[in-house]
Amino acid sequence: MTAPTLDDDLDSLLLIRHFEQRLLDLFAAGELNGTTHTCLGQEHVPVALSPLLAEDDFVLSNHRGHGHYLARYDDPAGLLAEIMGRRGGVCDGVGGSQHLFRDGYLSTGVQGESLPVGVGIALSLRRRKPGSVVVAYIGDGTWGEGAVYEALNMAALWRAPMIVVVEHNGIAQTTPTEAHLAGTIGGRCAGFGIRHRLVEGNDVTAIRAALAPAISLVRTSGEPLVVEFRTHRLGPHSKGDDTRSEQELEAARRADWYPRLAAAAPESFAAADGRQRDRVAAVVDDVRARPASEWRRQWPANE
């Protein structure tokens, strides 16, 4: 791992931002099929974490996973082709937006399902690649699922080197946290004796510095860790289904990293912004022109 520069981080944040915005545009224009869940406003979470991960670490992502993918792999064309069902998609268009798989990365679309799976992968890593960790991204809404607690219990009992990253954006589809979560996430972790770190703000460098020792400790001790990011979802749950008030949306926009970073260094920000906007535009043009993907179905030999 080479340490990323501030410019690298900014490029990564802006790539994800423009990618997600173009997705919503493409949906509005009728060019995309199905559904999507954008991570607008949450880009800093995987951008802060990705450089702390090694090649042998395993990332489990969820329905809102484009940022997780793009922060780990510089592959916007593969992701867009997957979403558009075009040649060169990560999974040939079979999985689509929320079902991606590469060595060391898997996303799936059922809430909470990934955490027991993460415990299993973590136990295998401990045997075969000691020092490696699983990072599983979930949301605040995921804490309604029983699988979360079965997994946390086993992770703590068996010292599974797993880091659960909670993107607590205050809203589960349309349901605000206070209407779906009793107590606190930290309190729930305490019940299992699992360390819990709360992260506020979106300063990528500061977040990374604060989390690096805690993540190292997971590698050496095997003790699981829950990192809760207080964040904001700028966009709708999927598309056009935002039920929040203008006041709430304004609060989310005020907390966004984009205007803050634009004001901090206007010239270099504008240059980076233009660069990533153009890059995404080029990716869209490229992928849009590709033929439809082909599903290479392989049936079991004895079926």
């Binding site: 027991p116 993460g118 997994a151």
Partner: peptide, 14 residues
Amino acid sequence: NGIVGVANGLALAG
């Protein structure tokens, strides 16, 4: 559900 999930994770890891 949890233990079948753990098994699935182990299986995914080979």
